[in-house]
């Protein structure tokens, strides 16, 4: 279900967190979809179960996941038919940060950045 790279330098909990947020926001993980148990996910990727537990708890607090006693965690119903703008924006944050950083390093101004964004966006308009 997930792609985790334990040795990329990015903490595993952050990879899992961002991935689940993104998959839920985009609708790829539909409401009601059960998630692997903490133990299953930890075993599959050979990672510490506490890491998985931390992520699941955080996402439960955010309303992205739902806990059910004695049953696997599921994707919570996201209003209305797709994730609220706030959580979609949150999922976008790391990508925006990277773009802003690249822009600064290349010493481009905001207009040039927006222009580059617009050009690529329009290219995918079909």
């Amino acid at each position: 279900m997930f792609i985790l790279k334990p040795h990329s330098g990015v903490p595993i909990y952050r990879q899992l967190l961002e991935q689940i947020r993104r998959l839920v926001s985009s609708g790829q993980l539909a409401p009601g979809t059960p998630l692997p148990s903490i133990r299953e996910l930890a075993l599959e990727h050979a990672i510490n179960p506490m890491t998985v537990s931390k992520v699941y708890s955080l996402l439960e607090t955010e309303g992205v996941l739902e806990r059910h006693r004695g049953k696997p965690m599921t994707v919570a119903a996201q209003r209305p038919g797709r994730a609220p703008v706030a959580s979609r924006r949150k999922a976008l944050e790391p990508h925006v940060d990277n773009l802003v950083l690249a822009g600064r390093q290349l010493e481009l101004d905001l207009d040039e950045l927006v222009e580059a964004l617009r050009t690529r966006w329009e290219k995918t308009d079909d």
Binding site: L43, I47, N48, M50
Partner: peptide, 27 residues
């Protein structure tokens, strides 16, 4: 080790040069 860790009442102390193993498992 994951199984041992999944049982919240057990603990592990792992000394290893295989840093990638520690990276996966250590809290």
């Amino acid at each position: 080790i994951v199984e041992v860790a999944a049982d919240g009442n057990r603990a592990v102390i792992l000394s290893s040069h295989i840093v990638s193993d520690i990276e996966r498992l250590a809290s």
